[in-house]
Amino acid sequence: MRKHWWVYAILSIGLIAMLFPFLWMVLSAFKTNADVYVYPPKWFPSQWNFDNFKRVFEMVPFALYYFNSLLVTVLVTYGQLIVSILAAFALSRLNFPFKNTIFIIVVSTMLMPFVVTMIPVFLIVSSFKWIDTYQGLVIPALFSGFSIIFLRQFFISIPQDLQDAAMIDGCGFFRILFQVILPNAKPAIATITLFNFLGEWRNYLWPLIVTNTTKMRTLPVGLRYLMTEGGGEYHLMMAASLMAILPVLLVYIFSEKQFIKSVTFTGLKT
């Protein structure tokens, strides 16, 4: 402990840098607008104010947005996970024609920013009459080049011998996938679940473009509505953000161990 005091010193700086904005959000959620703007800044609200939460519910149908966000995020997270696992398994463990070409195409989708593909995707979704539906929100998000490549790299690192042994014992591809590959890839799967969950939970642009009615809207769109064009009501924004962040915290707490394991495995982080 004493030998490494400087490690802890550096880590503490990181900790403060990370905690500061979070703490500021939590405390500002209870402030009045005047308190948020006061200079020099004050940490604690001059009086604890719970009205902000009430105001948020008055201004946007928060419960409905919450439900939509949860539903869409869960469907996208698990849907994408299933698609990605199957694709990654094929690309890492099976041999078939044009495998490399397909792999290169998958990689190249990662180079394309979303705004470039947004309008074509919107046109496709529109031709299926999926605008303003859950299908429109979920299905275009099921394919993710990143998830596939991330899992493929992990699957490749699992020794071929395990697969060979399973094959000698008479396993088919599905049993190899479910009983050999997946149990060994738990950290990677936990990580990708977390990535997907976080990414979809805060996804703003696509839900905004593809939904046209209040009943289909998700939380990030609702959060944006609390701000005026020129900035403004941070106290409401913070109260809403505090409520919006809870599921993410829960998911993180539950998958934290696996997540850390996987980061140390792969050297990747968000």
Binding site: M59, R224, Y225, L226, M227, T228, E229, G232, E233, L236
Partner: peptide, 8 residues
């Protein structure tokens, strides 16, 4: 495209 109190 008007939000916040103005949107209200």
């Amino acid at each position: 495209a008007i939000s916040g109190t103005s949107g209200e």
